[in-house]
């Protein structure tokens, strides 16, 4: 049961998006988020959606998978849409009125744009990052992008190493939790009865063995790492060197052009725009 939780749903592949330097992807994602929130009118939004669709197509990730990513946030989308729909006061007459519930045209537009923003946000980040970048590449990229912070004594390498080890051990510990739960159940432990305090108490027989095992693993892992000559960041090289290639420069150029066009479209006169 616990094993079914998937973390960092990475789909290996060799699409242009997969091949992008993870550092470039990280930076582009941040910029994309900014862009998503700067789109203002129907033209800019249409262009944005077009952009996100091309991202999906380029990544060769199936639409089904993308829809799966959106499913968990459907409620959130519905909620924001409803709030925008009913709480936006427009000018002129409402297009719909029932008692105190009034819907203006502006509300409808805002709700639509909000939904588009959320969809683009989720699709864009998952396509650019989680679906096409392995967790290790991501940690790596973070480590390298944040390297300048070392000057002010931020332990960037240590954080990245901790993240890598955490990612490595999450499946192992989940499996272990499953095993311990089953073992204590076999000894008659009831883990799901009573109120919250009872439940917390009932989990003690699971948590203590889990902690002890995690410490034992940490101890052994530290010893194994020492045996493999690990001594921190100093003098350490990497097998995979991140190097910006043509495709990376090209993607940056494309992105800049895309940004320019979007900002231009924002200036076009139309009545269908965010208030």
């Amino acid at each position: 049961m616990l094993k079914d939780i998937t973390l960092g749903q990475f789909f290996p592949g060799s699409s242009p998006i997969h091949r992008l330097d993870p550092r470039v992807k990280l930076v582009l994602v941040v910029l994309l988020v900014v862009l998503i929130f700067s789109a203002k009118n129907i033209f800019a939004f249409s262009f944005l959606v077009l952009g996100v669709i091309s991202l999906v197509l380029l990544s060769q990730i199936s639409v089904k998978v993308v829809l799966k990513a959106i499913r968990p946030i459907l409620i959130l989308m519905l909620f924001t849409a409803i709030i925008n729909l009913f709480w936006t006061k427009g000018t002129g007459d409402p297009i719909f009125a029932l008692g105190f519930i009034k819907v203006w045209r502006e509300g409808l537009v805002n709700a639509l744009f909000m939904v588009l923003r959320i969809v683009s946000l989720v699709t864009g980040t998952s396509i650019l990052l989680t679906y096409t970048t392995s967790p290790i590449a991501l940690t790596d990229a973070l480590e390298r992008l944040l390297k300048p912070l070392k000057v002010i004594k931020v332990p960037v390498h240590e954080f990245a190493m901790m993240m890598t080890i955490a990612l490595r051990f999450i499946p192992t510990l989940l499996e272990e939790t499953d095993k311990i739960i089953n073992a204590q159940k076999a000894r008659g432990a009831s883990l799901d009865k009573g109120n919250l305090i009872d439940k917390v108490k009932a989990f003690v027989p699971v948590l203590i063995p889990l902690f002890i095992s995690a410490f034992r693993r940490a101890d052994e892992l530290a010893c194994a790492m020492e045996c493999r000559c690990y001594r921190g960041d100093e003098g350490r090289t990497r097998m995979k060197v991140l190097k910006m290639g043509e495709i990376d420069y090209l993607s940056i150029v494309v992105f800049l052009v895309f940004t320019a066009v979007l900002f231009f479209l924002n200036t076009l006169p139309t009545s269908i725009s965010v208030r």
Binding site: K179, A183, A186, R187, G188, V204, P205
Partner: peptide
């Protein structure tokens, strides 16, 4: 009794750990 059952021990004393099942 699962494989490597020693990893499910959790009580303060051996007595109390063995008593966990009977207590339940």
């Amino acid at each position: 009794v699962f494989q490597y059952p020693e990893y499910q021990l959790f009580e303060e004393t051996v007595f109390r750990d063995i008593a966990f099942g009977p207590t339940n």
